[in-house]
Structure formats: structure tokens, C-alpha cells
Computed example of a mutant assay.
Amino acid sequence: MTEYLFLFHNTLGVVKTRRALQAAGKDFRVTDIPRQLRGGCGLCIWIACPEEGYQDWVMAGLTESVYRVQGEQWDCIATYPPA
């Protein structure tokens, strides 16, 4: 499993992604965005899933970017335009 960090354009993205993850019974956590990163709404979601499985949780128009977490480092692997 790989850990991913999702940033959102606004809090609606956090809410919708959280609801989808809860409905699917997935483990996740919502936190403030790490200081080293910047994002639209200030909140992020951490998800552990198989490689490339992160795409299942991207919300078109709501997800801003996805980072692969590697220890204390984050590698941006995808960015998305706002709605």
C-alpha cells in the first residue's frame, strides 16, 4: 500500500471525498495541509491504497492535487483544474 495526500480547491471537495471514503469503508484521515505544501482550502485527506488506486478517489473539479507520501517527503504526481 502507498500513502497519498489529497489537496482540494475548496472544502466541498474534502466533504465529498470524505463521504465517498466512509461509504466505501476506507481508512483515511483529514488534517490541516502540511506547512511545506499549499492548497486551496487548508485541509487535506490522507489515504493508503494500492499504487495508482488513488485515481478512484479523485473528484473532478474538486481535487486540486495528489501527492505520493514517502516518509517526510511528498511527490506531486497529479494536478487538476478547478471546476
Rank of each mutant, 00 (worst) to 15 (best):
F6E: 01
G40K: 00
D75E: 13
A24P: 11
I47M: 02
T17H: 03
G71L: 12
Q55I: 14
F6Q: 01
F28A: 06
I45T: 11
P81V: 12
T31G: 04
Y67E: 03
C49M: 14
P34Y: 02
N10V: 04
W74R: 05
T63M: 08
L37R: 01
M1P: 13
P82A: 10
E64T: 04
E52T: 09
L5P: 01
G13M: 01
E51H: 07
G42Q: 01
G39E: 00
L21F: 11
N10D: 05
Q36I: 10
M1R: 11
I33K: 00
M59Q: 09
A78C: 13
P50E: 15
V15Y: 09
L37M: 08
A20G: 15
V15E: 09
Y67Q: 03
I45M: 10
C76T: 08
Y80P: 02
A78D: 09
A24R: 15
W57V: 07
H9I: 05
S65P: 07
G42T: 00
A78M: 08
H9C: 03
Q70R: 15
W46F: 14
R19A: 15
L21G: 10
L43Y: 05
V30Y: 06
P34D: 05
I47G: 00
E51F: 09
Y4I: 04
Q36Y: 06
P81A: 14
P82D: 10
F28H: 07
E64C: 08
P34T: 03
E3F: 10
A24V: 12
Q22R: 15
L21Y: 13
D32L: 09
G61R: 06
Y67M: 05
Y67S: 03
Q36G: 05
F8V: 01
I47E: 00
